[in-house]
Design a protein around this nucleic acid. Structure first.
Lengths: 163, 163
DNA sequence: ATCTATTGTTAGACGAGTCTAACAATATTC
DNA sequence: GAATATTGTTAGACTCGTCTAACAATAGAT
């Protein structure tokens, strides 16, 4: 699946899908507010996306995604979630920054890197190595700039145990 | 330090800095080849960057960075290196993809996330937790889809040792 | 020193995406 | 149900960054 939409068009698809998800009426005004653009920009984007069969929109009516549009939107949303998850959980970034970065990076990251990022997150959460998990030790390292005592401690214990 | 350049202009600065670094003569042709754009695009970019005092360039002459331009370029290059390093080393992505992704993401990632990514990499490399380091275990997980034996094993050993 | 190949520049078109201004349709309110 | 407010559309300007085509300067070869 090649990336066939520009960053902007992906943003429109994503915004429509999110509004849909929140049960809100999807109208030009809403989209324009979410994306911080003026209404004519939305109209113009909708025209383009309709032309490509990703969106259904009669003038002055509600905005809907076609099944193809929905698929494309879900793809973007998935990328977004994976990224913001990675940033906030693995890197302990504040939600605001995590969102911001996800919004930008979602348009440019490769499939492979995204998949690996996800797996990395799963791994760090699945491989706790004792009572303190990886994330906790990382956060200690972030705060103090050096490895946590218990991390070094554990190494010596392991060595003893395997002797 | 706010991001004051567009992605394109950052690409030009970066390319000039890299060519410089490699000791090559920095000319319009070289830059155009590196960035896969035509020469008029380079000329036009140079005009813009000169106007902003980031580049020195007499018509038909060599291209140089001013000190401000150099600073800006070093900043981009630093972001690029941090990212490609993270992708290739922490996520075990092939160098080609790591480069590609770094090239895109370097223009949009926040300072904070970049810093954390770097620290994360340092941490995973500094916190080996025994003979097999974190990266190795992660790569095992990548290949086999489950935690390595020795990882689970170590946990029990640690538990035994601390009993 | 001239002729040719290469490199670089200028001019101008184009596509993408945004905006403002003006107008049109729909909703709301009295 | 007419007056007004809100929402949406159209038209057209603008920026950014790219391109092609045509021309100009420099470098290299004979």
């Amino acid at each position: 699946m090649v990336r066939e939409q520009t960053a902007s068009m992906e943003d429109y698809l994503e915004a429509i899908a999110n509004l849909r998800e929140e049960g809100k009426a999807v109208r030009v005004k809403q989209v324009s507010q979410v994306l911080h653009v003026k209404m004519p920009s939305v109209t113009s984007a909708l025209k383009k996306l309709s032309g490509e069969g990703l969106v259904r929109h009669e003038p002055y009516g509600y905005i809907e995604l076609t099944s193809r549009g929905d698929k494309a939107a879900k793809d973007v949303v998935g990328r977004h979630k994976a990224l913001s998850c990675f940033f906030s959980q693995a890197l302990d970034i504040d939600p605001g920054t995590a969102e911001e970065d996800a919004c930008k990076i979602e348009h440019v990251i490769s499939r492979l890197s995204l998949e690996r990022l996800t797996k990395f997150l799963q791994f760090t959460q699945a491989c706790p190595l004792g009572e303190a998990n990886f994330s906790k030790r990382y956060k200690y390292y972030l705060e103090h700039g050096e490895l946590p005592e218990e991390c070094l401690l554990r190494i010596s214990k392991v060595k003893k145990a395997s002797e």
